[in-house]
Protein backbone atom coordinates (compact mmCIF):
# COMPACT_ATOMS: atom_id res chain seq x y z
CA UNK A 1 0.00 0.00 0.00
CA UNK A 2 1.30 3.31 -0.98
CA UNK A 3 1.41 5.91 1.73
CA UNK A 4 0.92 9.47 0.77
CA UNK A 5 0.57 12.53 2.87
CA UNK A 6 -0.21 15.97 1.67
CA UNK A 7 -0.29 19.04 3.82
CA UNK A 8 -3.83 20.36 3.59
CA UNK A 9 -3.41 24.12 3.44
CA UNK A 10 -7.13 24.61 3.26
CA UNK A 11 -7.63 22.77 6.56
CA UNK A 12 -4.81 24.72 8.20
CA UNK A 13 -6.24 28.07 7.18
CA UNK A 14 -9.76 27.11 8.13
CA UNK A 15 -8.66 26.20 11.64
CA UNK A 16 -7.22 29.65 12.33
CA UNK A 17 -10.37 31.51 13.50
CA UNK A 18 -11.20 28.75 15.96
CA UNK A 19 -7.64 28.54 17.27
CA UNK A 20 -7.41 32.32 17.69
CA UNK A 21 -10.12 32.10 20.34
CA UNK A 22 -7.55 30.33 22.53
CA UNK A 23 -5.01 33.12 22.35
CA UNK A 24 -6.67 35.51 24.83
CA UNK A 25 -6.65 32.70 27.39
CA UNK A 26 -3.04 31.82 26.67
CA UNK A 27 -2.06 35.47 27.05
CA UNK A 28 -4.23 36.07 30.10
CA UNK A 29 -2.84 33.02 31.96
CA UNK A 30 0.75 33.81 30.90
CA UNK A 31 0.87 37.48 31.66
CA UNK A 32 -1.56 37.42 34.59
CA UNK A 33 0.50 34.64 36.12
CA UNK A 34 3.80 36.31 35.32
CA UNK A 35 2.71 39.62 36.85
CA UNK A 36 1.90 37.91 40.13
CA UNK A 37 4.99 35.72 39.73
CA UNK A 38 7.12 38.83 39.40
CA UNK A 39 5.78 40.18 42.70
CA UNK A 40 6.31 36.79 44.36
CA UNK A 41 9.80 36.70 42.85
CA UNK A 42 10.73 40.08 44.29
CA UNK A 43 9.33 39.20 47.72
CA UNK A 44 10.77 35.69 48.01
CA UNK A 45 13.97 36.50 46.14
CA UNK A 46 14.76 39.27 48.61
CA UNK A 47 13.67 37.17 51.59
CA UNK A 48 15.96 34.37 50.42
CA UNK A 49 18.99 36.62 50.91
CA UNK A 50 17.81 38.13 54.18
CA UNK A 51 20.17 37.83 57.12
CA UNK A 52 17.40 36.50 59.38
CA UNK A 53 16.97 32.74 59.07
CA UNK A 54 13.26 32.78 59.90
CA UNK A 55 12.67 34.88 56.79
CA UNK A 56 15.23 33.12 54.64
CA UNK A 57 14.20 29.53 55.29
CA UNK A 58 10.52 29.75 54.31
CA UNK A 59 11.50 31.64 51.16
CA UNK A 60 14.07 29.01 50.26
CA UNK A 61 11.53 26.27 50.93
CA UNK A 62 9.01 27.91 48.59
CA UNK A 63 11.62 28.28 45.84
CA UNK A 64 12.83 24.69 46.14
CA UNK A 65 9.32 23.18 46.19
CA UNK A 66 8.05 25.03 43.14
CA UNK A 67 11.25 24.63 41.15
CA UNK A 68 11.61 21.01 42.11
CA UNK A 69 8.16 19.76 41.12
CA UNK A 70 6.65 19.67 37.61
CA UNK A 71 4.30 22.49 36.77
CA UNK A 72 1.84 19.90 35.46
CA UNK A 73 1.66 18.33 38.91
CA UNK A 74 1.29 21.80 40.42
CA UNK A 75 -1.67 22.74 38.27
CA UNK A 76 -3.35 19.35 38.76
CA UNK A 77 -2.86 19.73 42.49
CA UNK A 78 -4.37 23.22 42.47
CA UNK A 79 -7.31 22.27 40.23
CA UNK A 80 -8.18 18.80 41.53
CA UNK A 81 -6.52 18.74 44.94
CA UNK A 82 -7.10 22.13 46.49
CA UNK A 83 -10.93 22.12 46.13
CA UNK A 84 -10.97 19.36 48.78
CA UNK A 85 -9.17 21.74 51.08
CA UNK A 86 -11.06 24.94 50.36
CA UNK A 87 -14.39 23.15 50.07
CA UNK A 88 -15.38 24.39 46.64
CA UNK A 89 -14.36 24.16 43.02
CA UNK A 90 -11.60 26.32 41.61
CA UNK A 91 -12.21 27.46 38.07
CA UNK A 92 -9.62 26.35 35.52
CA UNK A 93 -8.58 29.87 34.59
CA UNK A 94 -7.80 30.76 38.20
CA UNK A 95 -5.94 27.48 38.67
CA UNK A 96 -3.88 28.16 35.55
CA UNK A 97 -2.95 31.69 36.58
CA UNK A 98 -2.10 30.50 40.08
CA UNK A 99 0.13 27.73 38.74
CA UNK A 100 2.05 30.09 36.45
CA UNK A 101 2.32 32.64 39.28
CA UNK A 102 3.67 30.20 41.85
CA UNK A 103 5.94 28.41 39.41
CA UNK A 104 7.43 31.46 37.70
CA UNK A 105 7.62 33.17 41.09
CA UNK A 106 10.05 30.51 42.26
CA UNK A 107 12.28 30.91 39.23
CA UNK A 108 12.03 34.71 39.31
CA UNK A 109 13.07 34.61 42.99
CA UNK A 110 16.33 33.08 41.84
CA UNK A 111 16.67 35.69 39.12
CA UNK A 112 16.14 38.45 41.69
CA UNK A 113 18.59 36.88 44.11
CA UNK A 114 21.23 36.52 41.41
CA UNK A 115 20.68 40.05 40.15
CA UNK A 116 20.95 41.63 43.57
CA UNK A 117 23.97 39.56 44.58
CA UNK A 118 25.76 40.48 41.36
CA UNK A 119 25.92 44.15 42.36
CA UNK A 120 29.28 45.06 43.85
CA UNK A 121 29.35 45.52 47.62
CA UNK A 122 31.08 48.86 47.07
CA UNK A 123 27.78 50.29 45.79
CA UNK A 124 26.09 49.56 49.10
CA UNK A 125 29.07 50.90 51.02
CA UNK A 126 29.03 54.10 49.00
CA UNK A 127 25.32 54.56 49.70
CA UNK A 128 25.69 53.91 53.42
CA UNK A 129 28.74 56.15 53.68
CA UNK A 130 26.68 59.00 52.22
CA UNK A 131 24.18 58.63 55.01
CA UNK A 132 21.46 56.73 53.16
CA UNK A 133 19.62 54.11 55.19
CA UNK A 134 19.90 50.45 54.21
CA UNK A 135 16.43 50.63 52.64
CA UNK A 136 17.24 53.80 50.69
CA UNK A 137 20.55 52.37 49.57
CA UNK A 138 18.87 49.23 48.35
CA UNK A 139 15.98 50.80 46.44
CA UNK A 140 17.76 53.78 44.93
CA UNK A 141 21.19 52.27 44.24
CA UNK A 142 21.27 48.48 44.23
CA UNK A 143 17.83 47.61 42.84
CA UNK A 144 17.91 49.77 39.68
CA UNK A 145 21.24 48.24 38.70
CA UNK A 146 20.16 44.72 39.62
CA UNK A 147 16.89 45.08 37.72
CA UNK A 148 18.73 45.99 34.54
CA UNK A 149 20.73 42.79 34.81
CA UNK A 150 17.55 40.83 35.48
CA UNK A 151 15.86 41.76 32.20
CA UNK A 152 17.38 38.98 30.02
CA UNK A 153 16.63 36.14 32.47
CA UNK A 154 13.17 37.60 33.14
CA UNK A 155 12.47 37.53 29.41
CA UNK A 156 13.61 33.95 29.35
CA UNK A 157 11.23 33.06 32.15
CA UNK A 158 8.34 34.82 30.40
CA UNK A 159 8.90 32.70 27.29
CA UNK A 160 9.09 29.50 29.35
CA UNK A 161 5.87 30.39 31.19
CA UNK A 162 3.99 31.21 27.98
CA UNK A 163 4.84 27.74 26.69
CA UNK A 164 3.97 26.14 30.03
CA UNK A 165 0.37 27.32 29.66
CA UNK A 166 -0.01 24.73 26.89
CA UNK A 167 -0.03 22.06 29.63
CA UNK A 168 -3.19 23.53 31.09
CA UNK A 169 -5.27 21.95 28.34
CA UNK A 170 -5.46 19.06 30.84
CA UNK A 171 -7.65 21.08 33.17
CA UNK A 172 -9.82 22.26 30.33
CA UNK A 173 -8.89 25.92 30.01
CA UNK A 174 -9.75 26.99 26.49
CA UNK A 175 -6.23 28.08 25.69
CA UNK A 176 -4.43 27.51 22.41
CA UNK A 177 -3.66 23.79 22.69
CA UNK A 178 -7.08 23.02 24.11
CA UNK A 179 -8.70 24.79 21.17
CA UNK A 180 -6.53 22.74 18.84
CA UNK A 181 -7.56 19.46 20.48
CA UNK A 182 -11.23 20.34 20.26
CA UNK A 183 -10.88 21.31 16.62
CA UNK A 184 -9.00 18.13 15.72
CA UNK A 185 -11.63 15.99 17.42
CA UNK A 186 -14.04 17.14 14.73
CA UNK A 187 -11.79 17.35 11.69
CA UNK A 188 -8.99 14.80 12.27
CA UNK A 189 -6.47 17.25 10.77
CA UNK A 190 -3.89 16.90 13.57
CA UNK A 191 -0.83 17.70 11.49
CA UNK A 192 -2.18 20.93 10.08
CA UNK A 193 -3.76 22.17 13.30
CA UNK A 194 -0.76 21.52 15.55
CA UNK A 195 1.38 23.13 12.89
CA UNK A 196 -0.75 26.29 13.11
CA UNK A 197 -0.73 26.08 16.92
CA UNK A 198 3.08 25.93 16.92
CA UNK A 199 3.29 28.94 14.60
CA UNK A 200 0.99 30.91 16.91
CA UNK A 201 3.17 30.18 19.95
CA UNK A 202 6.19 31.17 17.92
CA UNK A 203 4.60 34.46 16.95
CA UNK A 204 3.88 35.28 20.58
CA UNK A 205 7.35 34.35 21.81
CA UNK A 206 9.16 36.02 18.93
CA UNK A 207 7.32 39.31 19.49
CA UNK A 208 8.26 39.12 23.14
CA UNK A 209 11.92 38.48 22.29
CA UNK A 210 11.88 41.44 19.97
CA UNK A 211 10.39 43.76 22.59
CA UNK A 212 12.88 42.56 25.18
CA UNK A 213 15.78 43.16 22.88
CA UNK A 214 14.64 46.75 22.38
CA UNK A 215 14.20 47.28 26.12
CA UNK A 216 17.63 45.80 26.80
CA UNK A 217 19.31 47.99 24.24
CA UNK A 218 17.72 51.11 25.71
CA UNK A 219 18.75 50.00 29.19
CA UNK A 220 22.35 49.44 28.20
CA UNK A 221 22.99 52.83 26.68
CA UNK A 222 22.42 54.54 29.99
CA UNK A 223 24.87 52.40 31.98
Amino acid sequence: MEFQFQFDWQAAIQSIPFLLKGIPYTLLISFGGLAIGFLLGIIFGLLSINKRWFLRWPATAYIEVFRGTPILVQVLFIFYGLPDLVGGPIDPLTAGIAAIALNSGAYISEVVRGGVQSIDKGQTEAGLSLGLSRTQTFWSIVWPQAFRRMIPPLGNQAIVSIKDTSLFSVIGVGELVRQGQVYIANTFTAFEVYFVVAIMYLMITLSLSLILRLVERRGLTSV
Partner: peptide, 26 residues
Protein backbone atom coordinates in the same frame (compact mmCIF):
# COMPACT_ATOMS: atom_id res chain seq x y z
CA UNK B 1 32.32 61.55 53.81
CA UNK B 2 34.23 58.68 52.28
CA UNK B 3 36.20 58.20 49.08
CA UNK B 4 36.94 54.65 48.00
CA UNK B 5 39.77 53.06 46.08
CA UNK B 6 37.34 51.80 43.43
CA UNK B 7 35.39 55.10 43.28
CA UNK B 8 32.06 53.28 43.71
CA UNK B 9 30.15 55.82 41.67
CA UNK B 10 26.58 54.84 40.86
CA UNK B 11 26.76 53.69 37.23
CA UNK B 12 23.02 54.08 36.57
CA UNK B 13 23.04 57.79 37.46
CA UNK B 14 24.64 60.70 35.67
CA UNK B 15 27.56 62.46 37.31
CA UNK B 16 25.30 65.23 38.57
CA UNK B 17 22.66 62.80 39.87
CA UNK B 18 25.40 60.90 41.69
CA UNK B 19 26.12 64.07 43.62
CA UNK B 20 22.49 65.10 44.15
CA UNK B 21 21.25 61.74 45.43
CA UNK B 22 22.38 61.85 49.05
CA UNK B 23 21.43 65.47 49.87
CA UNK B 24 17.96 64.89 48.41
CA UNK B 25 17.38 61.51 50.08
CA UNK B 26 19.08 62.11 53.41
Amino acid sequence: GMVFQQFNLFPHLTVKKNIMLAPMKV
